[in-house]
Design a binder for these strands. Structure first.
Length: 840
RNA sequence: GCCGGAGUGGCGAAAUGGCAGACGCAGCGCACUCAAAAUGCGCCGGGUAACACCAUGGGGGUUCGAAUCCCCCCUCCGGCACCA
């Protein structure tokens, strides 16, 4: 940290190079280091749970400790800090905490590449980043910070896992996952390159069925979907979540197979079942093996093998250029309403992960089924006829028809209008036991196991006698061993760590082996905000009383990139915590605001490896943290982000210098001036500025808020050498300006507040109150238009009547020129703003 | 393909039915200075001698009046993508 100077005045004079007067100049580094030290010494930002004021929980997404902060981190954290400071000045007891999302792959990669232990790498990064956050001037209570790779934290991941296991919300199941035969490990989807190549070794990879751990998030699908309505979140985030959950209403129908098995399908169009002319199974469907005839076996096996090798992206592509593929199994099913024998095919356009992994194909009314039927010359039967358009003919149709119409060729339900009559068709099917209503979700259960080292160990052991046994709560945490051997084998070091692996069965005491999978790091971030409310609790993940006092979070800020996964998982965990009785609310974040991404100057994503990251440190050294904070707010709308540009920051420094100058001069001035007109005008401006700054902050329009500060400052600068600068109204104006700037520029505001002779700390003052009477203008500029074009501007009393405005407007020479003697047809009047005379 | 968001001076932008370009950056001129920096004053979309006029991605429409509302199209960014 920078040395603390005893006297800012003395230090300031060193840098003086002769301004227009003999006052000192603003020196950012001196001011900032002075107040940083003072605030830390006084614990100004310590949050007291017992504080009786109303609470405000302002949360910002915690960072991954990747090494150093770049301006994007500042953008994400210093701007919400401005709002948190506003709330503090408004009288709230504000919790604005900070922590580190400290487990994850980059630490492990650093270990493999550079031989540094992930724990060392992570804690060094965290220490450096804490120092950088201190520079920013954010009001963080560091005594509450949370580091997720600490056993004191991750033991509660394990505790929550056990609770979920008890309730059937955590389970183990076979999953189809990518497997690299060379590295002998499972890969995440993102680690499989195009062409099914392993990202690390280049080997050809394929899917394999392996036991994995899942969280049953689908249990809450309906609530997760439904609750989105009430949340004050950006609409696009809510839409993304709804699409991700993907609710579909329809029915489950059973088709019998010749093998004696029942083949269940989910369909959103049970009304079209009379038009089902074949069935399609996903290649991984469990009945494929059984239904395949000897004659077709070779072809089916070859197809299944080929499907496994495709990436999900290739497989799910709707690219029209990619023809439908598939193979006939040789087996047949019976259509439950027509009793017809229909062929069963397998095709990769049917996904095992949705519905039942099998469909009834209705080629006349589903475009995918239609394409498949045409490719393999399968029968098409029309069961919906549109009422207006030409009659559909199976032989000549060029595409599936899924518009409205009436059912035909559908026996007992012929003539039913669709889609309006679909429910009655489902009733018909239910009454006869041919199917039931069902709702399906696109949302899948959350696969949480990772074959990685740097994460939370999953707290179960495997015993030959007892099978899978949960680690008892009183034996938590299961510590991640630090003596791990990092070899670039692609295998988790846990699989070869004997000390970790060998244990005894908690149930029978026999030798047993530990689970070596660790948890997805999204688990860590799914409940961390609760931990901030009681970061040192050693009895539970968090103290229920503290969580009840602070939660739910009033305002959550973060990047749009977390619109789906993190926010959905966090909502899921909140519901789980509620259901196990830790809290009584179901939604964690009442209000969400997203910042845009700061790109490099070239408009590309800031990347450490490409060297396009912009470091805040040099900018702080050159211009000060306050100027950088303002600059980030002023770049443009906060939710939009955009390319970084360091040119404008000098303007922010100029603004601060000007305010500094005005405040220092004001502090030295006597109160002996008087100028009633000028004072009234000044107070109008002061109160209009309070209003603009306040509403802009509440609307998260930080750029226009800064513009309002500029306009106010510019006006004060113009008047500072006039008599009004020695009046009480001037004092009010300058003190108000300092208060309005306190959230944005916490350091210089504190300095100026002190120089104005006001009591420490500016950050504990009340936010200025806007007085509408003082802000009201006496005169306004009335724009006068003729036929919608501006022809004159008149200064008129603010309270002018429409009648009088009309007289004045018509009397204007400029207006007369364009009216040109014609009789006005209409007169449109917007009070206090505009008059429009219409002539023809 | 579907669903969002955006397109305005040299640049970042403001204005969400009522003066297009607030505010800032850059630039230009002037003052101060031996000079430069800093600071201050002025100019700063196109067009004209000055007006008129033209101008918010393109085209149409609604309206007394449109950057803003409606229809069609183009471009860029984000999300989803055979979900039965």
């Amino acid at each position: 940290m920078t040395d603390i100077k005893d006297s800012v005045i003395e230090a300031g004079r060193e840098g003086e190079s002769g301004g227009p007067d003999h006052l000192e100049r603003y020196n950012a580094s001196v001011v900032e280091s002075k107040w940083r030290a003072r605030w830390e010494a006084d614990d100004l930002y310590r949050v007291d749970d017992a504080d009786p004021r109303p609470k405000w929980y302002s949360l910002t997404m915690y960072p991954y400790p990747s090494g150093t902060l770049h301006v994007g981190h500042w953008y994400a954290f210093s701007v919400p800090d401005v709002y948190a400071r506003l709330q503090r000045m408004r009288g709230f007891n504000v919790l604005f905490p900070m922590g580190f999302d400290a487990f994850g792959l980059p630490a492990e990669n650093a270990a493999i590449r550079h031989g540094i232990h992930p724990a060392t790498w992570t804690s060094e990064n965290i220490e450096g980043m804490r120092q950088q956050y201190r520079q920013m001037g954010a009001m963080i209570d560091w005594s509450r910070d949370v580091v997720t790779c600490a056993p004191e934290y991750y033991r509660w991941n394990q505790w929550l896992f056990l609770k979920m296991l008890e309730r059937g919300l955590a389970y183990r199941a076979n999953g189809s996952v990518w497997w690299c035969p060379n590295d002998q490990t499972v890969l995440a989807n993102e680690q499989v390159l195009e062409g099914n190549i392993c990202e690390r070794c280049g080997a050809s990879v394929s899917k394999r069925d392996l036991e994995q751990w899942y969280f049953r998030i689908t249990h809450y699908a309906e609530e997760l979907l439904h609750n989105t309505e009430a949340l004050d979140w950006p609409e696009r985030v809510k839409i993304m979540q709804r699409n991700w959950i993907g609710r579909s209403e329809g029915a489950r129908l059973s088709f019998s197979l010749e093998t004696g098995d029942l083949l269940e399908v989910f369909t959103t169009r049970p009304d079209t079942v009379w038009g089902a002319t074949f069935m399609v199974l996903a290649p991984e469907h469990p009945l494929v093996e059984k239904i395949t005839s000897d004659q077709q076996r070779t072809a089916v096996q070859a197809y299944v093998e080929q499907a496994r090798r495709q990436t999900d992206i290739e497989r799910m592509s709707t690219d029209v250029s990619r023809p439908k593929s598939g193979v006939f199994t040789g087996g047949y099913a019976v259509n439950p309403v027509t009793d017809e024998r229909i062929p069963v095919w397998i095709a990769d356009y049917v996904l095992m992960g949705y519905g039942t992994g099998a469909i009834m194909a209705v080629p006349a009314h589903d475009e995918r089924d239609f394409a498949f039927a045409r490719a393999f010359d399968l029968p098409v039967r029309v069961v919906i006829q549109p009422e207006q358009a030409a009659t559909l003919e199976p032989g000549t149709m060029e595409q599936a028809y899924h518009g409205p119409g009436r059912l035909v060729n559908s026996g007992p339900v012929d003539g039913t209008p669709v889609p309006s009559g679909i429910p009655s068709v489902i009733d018909w099917l239910e009454e006869r036991g041919r199917g039931q209503r069902e709702v399906n979700y696109r949302l899948r259960d959350w696969l949480i196991s990772r074959q990685r080292y740097w994460g939370t160990p999953i707290p179960v052991v495997y015993c030959d006698a007892c099978g899978m046994v949960p680690v008892p709560e009183d034996q938590l945490p299961v510590i991640l061993p630090l003596d791990a051997a990092f070899e670039p084998t692609g295998q988790s070091p846990l699989t070869t760590n004997e000390g970790f692996l060998r244990t005894t069965c908690p149930s029978c005491g026999a030798a047993a082996k530990r689970e070596t999978d660790t948890m997805d790091t999204f688990v860590d971030s799914s409940w961390y905000w609760f931990r901030y409310t009681s970061p040192h609790d050693d009895r539970l993940p968090f103290d229920p009383a503290a969580a009840a006092a602070w939660c739910p979070v009033d305002l959550y800020c973060g990047g749009i990139e977390h619109a789906i996964l993190h926010l959905l998982y966090a909502r899921f965990f909140t519901k789980v915590c509620r259901d196990i009785g830790l809290i009584d609310h179901g939604e964690p974040f009442l209000r969400l605001r997203n910042q845009g991404m700061i790109l490099s100057e070239e408009g590309t994503k800031m990347s450490k490896s490409r060297g396009t990251q912009v470091a805040p440190d040099d900018l702080v050294a050159a211009h000060g943290a306050d100027a950088l904070r303002l600059h980030l707010m002023y770049l443009g709308p906060w939710d939009q982000g955009g390319p970084w540009n360091s040119r404008g920051i000098v303007g922010m420094e100029r603004l601060i210098r000007t305010v500094f100058q005005i405040a220092v001069e004001t502090a030295g001035n006597g109160l002996d001036g008087a100028d009633p007109d000028a004072e009234a005008a000044l107070r109008r401006l002061t109160h209009r500025t309070i209003e603009r700054v306040t509403t802009d902050l509440d609307d998260f329009q930080f750029n226009t808020m800064v513009a309002a500060l500029y306009e106010f400052t510019n006006e004060l600068r113009r008047q500072k050498d006039t008599p009004v600068a020695r009046t009480r109204s001037w004092r009010e104006a300058v003190e108000t300006l300092v208060l309005l700037m306190a959230p944005s520029t916490p350091y210089v505001a504190e300095e100026l507040w002190e120089r104005l002779g006001k009591p420490y700390s500016v950050h504990s003052q009340s936010w200025p109150v806007f007085d509408p009477d003082l802000a009201r203008e006496q005169f306004v500029e009335l724009v006068v238009q003729v036929n919608g074009k501006v022809r004159d501007k008149l200064t008129v009393p603010a309270a002018i009547s429409e009648e009088r405005a009309r007289e004045l407007a018509l009397a204007s020479d400029r207006v007369q020129e364009f009216v040109n003697g014609k009789e006005p047809l209409r007169f449109i009047y917007v009070p206090g703003r505009l008059a429009n005379i219409v002539v023809r």
